[in-house]
């Protein structure tokens, strides 16, 4: 069986490496532990700690007989390897015009922490991924990232990536707040 990425277990105060043989092993292991009863006092403590913590992994005991051992819930990383993208710069854009082959957007430079759009750019429609095509319309918000993509083989290339944001709907509360803000702004204008 192929060796998989190591995971850690904490054994008392020392740290040692643990290797799951497969994802299935891991899941079986995780489910057994999730289904355990909390009769063991240390188990119960760890379980409670898991419900207090918001770190990136849940720590749950392996089983009661080795109750001071803990294991992150993440399974071994045996999934298919994907390219990684290291960003160099990121802009937020909003679409102001769409023509037959390209669209124009105003851009806010997020990397330089700008707050207002100072730039405009044209983008080929072909640069928009198929799943995002439905989102392309005037006023649509997207992120433009440029950076280096590293393939699983190690080869690198510079890439430009457009991702249209699937934004939440405005809530009634937010709309009411926007109305209040607009009123406040309007009342603050000195008409002469």
């Amino acid at each position: 069986m192929a060796e998989t990425a190591s995971q850690y277990i904490d054994v008392g105060s020392t740290r040692s490496s643990w290797r799951a043989e497969s994802k299935d092993d891991f899941i079986e292991y995780a489910l057994k532990r999730l289904a355990r009863d909390d009769s063991d006092a240390v188990d119960a403590d760890l379980y409670r700690e898991g419900r207090r913590s918001t770190t990136n992994f849940a720590v749950i005991p392996i089983h009661a007989s080795e109750s001071d051992k803990m294991l992150p819930v993440f399974p071994p990383e045996e999934r298919r390897r994907r390219p990684t993208l290291v960003p160099l710069q990121e802009w937020e854009g909003h679409v102001i015009d769409i023509s037959e082959h390209h669209f124009t957007a105003r851009l806010v430079d997020m990397t330089r922490q700008e707050l207002i759009a100072r730039e405009e750019a044209d983008f080929e429609l072909d640069e928009v991924s198929d799943p995002d095509r439905d989102l392309l319309r005037e006023g649509a918000i997207f992120r433009w990232t440029i950076g280096y993509e590293t393939a699983p083989s190690g080869s690198k290339k510079r890439v430009s990536q457009l991702v249209f944001r699937r934004l939440p709907k405005w809530t009634k509360k937010e709309l009411a707040q926007a109305d209040r803000d607009a009123d406040k702004l309007l009342n603050g204008v000195n008409w002469e």
Binding site: E120, I146, S160
Partner: peptide
Amino acid sequence: MLHRDNRLSDATGGLGDFAM
């Protein structure tokens, strides 16, 4: 209006203020 190839080369020249 920006020329996008220029933007690509600009970006490699320096990172933003909060970049690690």
